[in-house]
């Protein structure tokens, strides 16, 4: 019976492969179920107010995520402010301006950046970015720009939102840059050549043809970069200063959701409600990443198809 089936059709083969597919679905359901199940006590106890409660007081069992959400979004937004122009420039350079024989090599360099592990970025930040901020940038801002809100320097220590943002920006750059490059490469070459033949400069071609044609893909890249920046953990833990306060300036120290999880989750499991609140923080991260990735994927699908760029698989 079985042999007949095996020879005749691929039922057995298909059955075995579908077990593997079932495994994939199981993995996805496991992560979602575990996070939902273990965060349920906190969700039912604190309700939606968890999102805007500022206290995080384990002994009194009052938990609210507002401080960490604020820190996470500050780091993410500032990182994107640095990363977007940089990666647009890189994408445009690689696709439009770069000499042909160097293009492959330069692309590999940017993709190597994507493969560097997050802890290595963290160490680089601690030993390079932080001293640089402490020695040059913070004293400069302190003496010249201290009247501008968000730019005041209170403690000249180097660690803080800005240090974390700079490093996260470099981790996000390869994603946005390579998706920008792929979107620009999807512009029909004949249109660009036509414009060049009519006497347009490269800048005209980029401004009037390439960017209008590929802006959706660039949005998609930015959305995926946002998703990556929100969940960044180890580099941020090492750089942000780890103080549960809402920073008033970009030089201030703060705390992000992922950093608080990395630092305190193993202590939290002794108290059920504490652990549950931490898992609820993870739930926020999970939901943000799922929503962001669904949106980003839908945007990208229309521009560059289902093509995955190498940079999307980060180095942890």
């Amino acid at each position: 019976m079985l042999k007949l089936k095996l020879n005749h059709k691929d039922d057995l083969f298909k059955f075995i492969l579908s077990i593997f597919v079932f495994g994939i679905i199981l993995i996805f359901l496991t992560v979602v179920t575990v996070i939902l199940y273990y965060s349920y006590p906190a969700v039912s106890r604190f309700g939606i107010a968890f999102l805007w409660t500022k206290e995080w007081d384990p002994p009194k069992e009052i938990f609210g995520a507002a401080t960490f959400i604020a820190g996470t979004f500050m780091v993410t937004i500032i990182a994107l402010i640095f990363a977007i122009p940089l990666s647009l420039g890189i994408g445009i350079f690689l696709e439009e301006y770069c000499p042909k024989f160097l293009k492959g090599f330069f692309t590999i360099i940017i993709e190597l950046l994507a493969g560097i592990p997050s802890v290595v970025f963290g160490v680089w930040g601690v030993l390079t970015i932080v001293p640089w901020l402490r020695k040059y940038i913070e004293p400069f801002f302190k003496s010249h720009f201290s009247f501008i809100p968000f730019l005041q320097v209170t403690e000249n220590i180097g660690y803080g939102i800005l240090a974390a943002s700079i490093v996260v920006a470099f981790m996000v750059v390869p994603i946005i840059a390579s998706i920008t490059k792929d979107s620009l490469a999807a512009v029909p070459k004949i249109t660009k050549d036509g414009a060049l033949a009519m006497g347009a400069t490269r800048l005209d071609v980029i401004k009037d043809i390439s960017l209008p044609f590929s802006y959706r893909g660039i949005y998609g890249g930015i959305i995926l970069g946002f998703g990556r920046a929100v969940g960044e953990t180890i580099a941020v833990v090492l750089l942000i200063g780890n103080q549960a306060i809402i920073p008033k300036s970009i030089f201030g120290v703060g705390y992000t959701i992922s950093a608080v999880l990395a630092n305190t989750f193993t202590f939290a499991v002794i108290s059920p409600i504490y652990a549950s609140s931490e898992v609820e923080l993870a739930l926020i991260l999970l939901l943000v990443s799922l929503i962001i990735n669904i949106i980003g994927r839908n945007v990208l699908q229309r521009v560059i198809g289902g093509k995955l760029s190498r940079a999307q698989f980060g180095g942890g």
Binding site: G231, L261, L285, S289, N293
Partner: peptide, 30 residues
Amino acid sequence: FGKQRANSIIRLLNELMIGIPSVVWGIMGF
């Protein structure tokens, strides 16, 4: 194998899993 629709859902799940932050995986693993 598989039908277009089912496959696109599985592909979506995979891409979503790539986007899940690693610290969330850690909590699940714990």
